[in-house]
Amino acid sequence: MNLTNNSENGAAVRASGLCKTYRGPTGEDFEAVRGLEFEATYGEIHGLLGPNGAGKTTTLRMLASILAPTAGTAIVAGADVVREPLEVRRRIGFLSASTGLYARLTGREILTYFGELHGIPREALRARIEELIDAFELARFVDQRTEGLSSGQRQRVSIARAVLHDPPVLILDEPTTGLDILATSDMIDFVASRRSAGRCVLLSTHVLSEAERLCDRIGVIHHGRMLADGTLDELRAETGREFLDEVFRELVARAEPPSA
């Protein structure tokens, strides 16, 4: 896989007309995502902002090819999520707040396992794991079972696991939920470091300060629709508001005019 080549193509992620409809137990449809369109490029941190239940997780899962879209498609790192799901999975890293670790395996074993699942040759894998151990300072606990680790240590193993194969696109679903202050700032540093390495990071959050500080571009999602997408300044200009929470409220109010 040639990264530079991909970078030249521009968009790292391009979603077009992405829809996901769940059907309720009594037959009525529930549209979680309704025709989402957006683009993210390499070297950019793209945030998806929205309240709980807005469709962020569903969107990210579709982009990660875990769920199949009901309609529309998306190209992630040059691969189509509908037609080449395996290729997409090869090119992305995925991490969410609910991601667990195998409690009875050690960090090194987990990294080795997922590396092998990615088909990384043994020698290269060993070297890569050492590299990650250095980068994320895992050396002290990487050979312990993860059930005994602190949540911060676990988080670092999870991050290492997600970037094990150096994916050009990283998808993070509310990555800081449930982390303490230090772990959160570690996570923020890590995300920033991916940008400087020329990768694309797709990140969902409902923490406004995080989005404000980290994201190059922000997409605001509400009820499965993209209300606005752009840099913070663009959003401010569009809504004429200063702070992100006001921007957000303004966008939602526009989408849902108060009922008569």
């Binding site: 990660a64 875990i66 999975r89 090869r90 995925f94 991601t99 667990g100 699942l117 696991r161």
Partner: peptide
Amino acid sequence: ETLLVQPV
């Protein structure tokens, strides 16, 4: 979830 995003 982690397992399902692997290219397998």
